Amino acid sequence: MHSRSMWLFSKVGQRAHIGALRRRGIIYCNTIEYFRGLRDGNLRGDPLENCTAFYHPGKSELRINGTKLNNIVGPIVVYNGPDDVYQTTHLFCVTSIYSGMEIREDGKIFDPRVSGFGDTMLIIKPAPFMARVEKAVEKLKQQGTDIELFKGLVEYVPAGENQHQMSVLRKADIYAWQEEFRLALRVRNWHGSAFLLEIGSIADISHVVPIKKFINKVEELSDGQVCLNFS
């Protein structure tokens, strides 16, 4: 897991959903299987979600009972079994702006493709947001819910190379433009689809921005504060 100083989180979605998140603090966490099956041009969907490894035919061999299989088309993907912990894991994903991140050549921090997620961006202060998330998870534990929180920046790995240790916090580098920070909630004995984590209003630690207004420049001031310029 990366350890970086977080400047801000941003969540892009439809205005109604962003409004519910801001006013009521409803964090909508979809299943890993949902994201794996989603076909949306590599925005939210990722067919490699829930895999533990993938191997390319030109860089590996596949043998069954000692017999080598030839003419394999596409990568060999190893997925978690139906009883694995990943099957009970739900994700909430945000874009992260953090110290040391690489600025795009056009000077913008957000990739224009984020507009595919919706028409409204919510800028969120990371520290108080995470404090409320952790408090809500702890409250559910005290109420008897078997729940565990995993969190962190996603590590992006080369899609063209064999990968032996994929996880909920590792993705192929074709998604690197998303600069994703993930909350992964493992909820045992949850038989629904999405899991809703309610943390209360975050109106005091967030700001709504129309998606057409991207942050063009970030400047770290001498006193350690950060200046974000919109246009």
Rank of each mutant, 00 (worst) to 15 (best):
I32Y: 08
V208Q: 14
A159S: 14
Y86I: 02
S206C: 06
K59Q: 06
A16K: 11
L122I: 09
P82N: 10
E198A: 07
S99N: 11
N42L: 11
G118K: 10
Y156G: 08
R24F: 10
R170W: 03
N42P: 01
S10F: 07
A53F: 07
K217E: 12
F230T: 01
R15G: 10
Q143A: 15
K217L: 07
A184C: 12
R39T: 12
N42A: 14
I147H: 05
V77W: 09
A131G: 01
N71C: 04
G192H: 02
G152L: 13
E33M: 11
R15K: 14
N71L: 06
I76G: 10
A53P: 04
R39A: 12
L169S: 10
D83V: 03
I199E: 09
H164S: 05
P126F: 06
R170T: 13
L197W: 08
E180V: 03
S10I: 11
G58D: 13
K217Y: 01
I97F: 13
F35P: 04
S60V: 03
N65F: 13
H191G: 05
A136M: 12
R39L: 11
D223T: 08
F35G: 00
I215V: 14
Q178R: 11
H2C: 00
T145P: 01
D223I: 00
I147Y: 04
T31I: 07
I202E: 03
G66L: 00
L38D: 09
L149I: 06
N162K: 01
A53L: 09
L48K: 12
W7R: 08
F110I: 06
R63F: 09
V168L: 15
I103T: 14
D173M: 02
D223C: 11
T120P: 01
V77G: 02
F9W: 05
V187P: 07
I147Q: 02
G107A: 08
K139M: 14
F92D: 07
H2G: 00
V154E: 03
Y28F: 15
A136P: 07
E198K: 06
F214M: 08
A16N: 10
K171I: 02
P158R: 12
D111C: 09
I103H: 07
L153I: 14
V73A: 02
T88Q: 13
L185C: 09
L122F: 05
L183F: 11
N65I: 07
F129P: 01
F181T: 01
M130F: 12
D146A: 11
V137T: 06
V187F: 09
Y98T: 11
H164P: 04
P128Q: 14
G45T: 09
R182V: 01
E33D: 15
T88M: 11
A194V: 09
H191S: 11
I76V: 15
N229H: 13
I205F: 08
I64P: 02
Y55S: 00
P47Q: 08
A184L: 00
